[in-house]
C-alpha cells in the first residue's frame, strides 16, 4: 500500500507546484489582458533590422515596474 502513499503525495505536491505557478502568473499580470496576446501572436515579425532595442534593460525595467 505504500505505493499509493507515494503516488498520492507526489500528485499532491505536483498540484501544489501548479498552484504556486498559478499564483505567480496571476501576480505578474498574465490574466490582466486575455485578448490582446491572441491578436499579437498572429502578426508577422518585421524583417528590417531593429534600430534600438536593448532587451536586457527592458526586462529589468519591466520587473521593476511591476510591484507586488
Amino acid at each position: 500500500m505504500s505505493i499509493i502513499l507515494i503516488l498520492a503525495s507526489a500528485g499532491f505536491l505536483l498540484a501544489l507546484g501548479f498552484l504556486v505557478a498559478f499564483y505567480w502568473a496571476t501576480k505578474s499580470g498574465q490574466f490582466d489582458d486575455t485578448y490582446t496576446p491572441s491578436v499579437r501572436i498572429l502578426h508577422d515579425e518585421l524583417h528590417t533590422p531593429e534600430p534600438n532595442t536593448d532587451p536586457s534593460h527592458v526586462n529589468e525595467l519591466n520587473s521593476k515596474s511591476n510591484p507586488s
Binding site: D33, Y35, T36, R40, L46, E50, P51, N52, T53, D54
Partner: peptide, 20 residues
Amino acid sequence: LENLHRMHPGIVTSMVNFNK
C-alpha cells in the same frame, strides 16, 4: 502601436491592452 519603436528611436517598447 506595438511597432512604435520604429518611428522614433527614443521609444523602447510599447504594449497594447485592447480591451482597455
